[in-house]
C-alpha cells in the first residue's frame, strides 16, 4: 500500500536540514511500529520518498512524503489512512505534524504510481516581514496605506513584460525571465490571506508585528524551481529597496501537482 502524507514543519525544528528531517522520519517510523516496507539488499532502507527538500530556516504546512507499507499492521489489522495517521502521528514530536494523509490507489504487482517527488509542479509561499525590520520604501507612507501602496507596486511589478533575474545554480549564473513561472503574487496584512492559498496552508506560519506578508505561487519541482527569495528580491529591487534574506520568514504553504487546478500532491 502507498500512502501520501502531507505534513507541517514549524517552530524551532525549522533549523533542521532536509537530510536530518529524513532521518527524523525514519526514526519516527521505527518508533511507531508502522509496518513500512524495506528495499532489498544488505543494507535495506525504508521505502519513503520526500517530495522536495525544504531549506533550513523555512517553515511549512505543505510538505509531502510517500511511504510504502504492508497491508496489515503488526496486530494483523488492515491498514488505512486513518490508522497510519494514528500510528505515525503518535511518534512525532512537537514541530512535526501530519496535516492529511491519503492512500494512493495501486495494485501490488503493477507499475508504481508516480511518486510525490516527480509530481511536484508548483508551490505556494508566504514571506512575512519579521519583527525588528521595516521597508525603507514605506517610511513616508501612512500606516493604514502601507499594504495598498505595496499592492500597487506589486501590480506594476507583475505588469512588466518580463522579469529578468540572475539565477544561481551549481553550473554558474545566468539571466532568466522568471515571469512565466510566477503564477500568483499578492501582499496582505496579518488579517487576510489571498484566495489562492487556503487556511490549512498557513496554519503554522508565524505571524509578525509589521503585518506585511507576501504570497507567491511559483513553479517548483525538477523542471523549473523558483525560490520565493528570488522573486521577492526582484520585486524589492524593482522598488529600489535592498533585500536581505534575514528580513523575511519564509513559509511553504502547499505544493501542487497541477498548478492550474490547484490540486495538492
Amino acid at each position: 500500500m502507498i500512502f501520501r502524507i502531507r505534513f507541517a514543519k514549524y517552530g524551532v525544528v525549522k533549523f533542521i536540514g532536509h537530510l536530518d528531517v529524513m532521518r527524523y522520519f525514519q526514526k519516527a517510523v521505527r518508533r511507531s511500529e508502522l509496518p513500512i516496507k524495506y528495499s532489498q539488499g544488505f543494507n535495506p532502507h525504508q521505502l519513503m520518498v520526500f517530495a522536495q527538500p525544504l531549506g533550513v530556516g523555512v517553515t511549512s504546512d505543505g510538505e509531502y512524503m510517500d511511504i510504502e507499507t504492508e497491508d496489515v499492521d503488526f496486530a494483523g489489522n488492515a491498514l488505512s489512512a486513518e490508522r497510519v495517521r494514528e500510528i505515525l502521528g503518535g511518534a512525532l514530536t512537537e514541530g512535526f505534524e501530519i496535516v492529511s494523509i491519503r492512500q494512493i490507489p495501486w495494485q501490488e504487482g503493477t507499475k508504481h504510481p508516480e511518486n510525490a517527488m516527480s509530481l511536484v509542479a508548483g508551490a505556494d509561499y508566504v514571506m512575512s516581514l519579521k519583527d525588528g525590520y521595516s521597508l525603507g520604501i514605506l517610511d513616508s507612507v501612512e500606516q493604514d496605506d502601507k499594504i495598498s501602496y505595496l499592492k500597487q507596486k506589486l501590480e506594476s511589478f507583475m505588469g512588466q513584460d518580463n522579469i529578468v533575474v540572475c539565477k544561481k545554480s551549481k553550473s554558474g549564473e545566468k539571466d532568466m525571465d522568471i515571469k512565466p513561472y510566477i503564477y500568483e503574487a499578492a501582499v496582505e496584512d496579518n488579517s487576510r490571506i489571498p484566495s489562492f492559498i487556503d487556511e490549512t496552508g498557513v496554519a503554522h506560519a508565524d505571524v509578525y508585528e509589521p503585518g506585511i506578508r507576501f504570497f507567491f505561487s511559483l513553479s517548483a519541482g525538477s523542471a523549473v524551481n523558483i525560490k520565493p527569495e528570488l522573486v521577492l528580491e526582484a520585486f524589492l529591487s524593482y522598488c529600489g529597496e535592498d533585500f536581505n534574506e534575514l528580513m523575511f520568514q519564509i513559509h511553504r504553504a502547499q505544493m501542487y501537482s497541477d498548478v492550474e487546478q490547484h490540486t495538492g500532491l
Partner: peptide, 10 residues
Amino acid sequence: KSARYIGHEV
C-alpha cells in the same frame, strides 16, 4: 549546524 543549539530533541 544551528540544530546543535535548539534543544527540543526526541
